[in-house]
Design a protein around this nucleic acid. Structure first.
Length: 202
DNA sequence: CCCTGATTCGC
DNA sequence: GCGAATCAGG
């Protein structure tokens, strides 16, 4: 294909509209994006890097930033359910991984397993496991029996430590009183910290 | 790896 | 003038 007047006009138009070289090449047909770019360059009509694009960005960017900022400002003061769900998603997978999901990656199974004092593939109730830890580690205050709260029962001040298999209907949360800013009670906060640190080392 | 435009250089 | 190859950046 050759650059007829029509095709050049169309090129100019599309280019000024902000279409990318490859998009223009597709519309014109018979030319590659390189051809388009080359032509654009020869026509010296590449003000786009300063006109359309920058204009678009200078308009979009501030708007996006503002929107994001507002969201954060709204979220920060009041965590609510969103935070709860995030916590669940974070913690649960971590524990599931440690129970031997392995995958193809060379994840040292000792890592998570050690932190939780579990054997790989050990499907035993987390509840039982936690009780063991309680006995073995009187270091923290002895934690009362889990209040066994469901997700919707959690508040800002309840421990959100998950207990049991999330897919099983006996799944629940610790639910005991959590110190002010913490998502967990003092006991589970320690466990959570361990896990995080171990993961960091990786 | 997908994309973007920019540049080079033989045709 | 043309555009494939290549480069640089996101």
């Amino acid at each position: 294909m050759s650059w007829t007047d029509e095709r050049v006009d169309l090129l100019k138009q599309l280019w000024s509209e902000g279409l990318s070289a490859s998009q223009i090449a597709d519309r014109l047909g018979g030319v590659s994006r390189n051809a388009v770019i080359g032509k654009v360059h020869r026509l010296k009509l590449e003000s786009r890097g300063k006109t359309s694009v920058i204009d678009a960005k200078s308009v979009e960017t501030p708007v996006e930033v503002e929107a994001e900022t507002e969201e954060r400002v709204e979220k920060t003061p009041e965590p609510r359910l969103e935070t709860v769900e995030e916590t669940v998603e974070m913690v649960v997978p971590a524990r599931l991984v440690s129970s031997g999901g392995g995958m193809s990656r060379a994840m040292p199974r000792t890592m998570g397993a050690t932190a939780l004092k579990m054997e790989p593939g050990d499907d035993v109730d987390f509840e039982a496991d936690i009780e063991e830890v309680q006995e073995t580690r009187p270091s923290g205050e002895v934690v009362p029996i889990a209040r066994k709260l469901s997700l919707v029962q959690l508040t800002e001040r309840t421990c959100k430590w998950p207990v049991g298999d999330p897919l099983h209907d006996d799944f629940h949360f610790c639910g005991n009183t959590a110190p002010d800013a913490s998502p967990y009670c003092s006991f589970h906060a320690k466990l959570a910290f361990q896990t995080v640190e171990r993961r960091r080392i990786r």
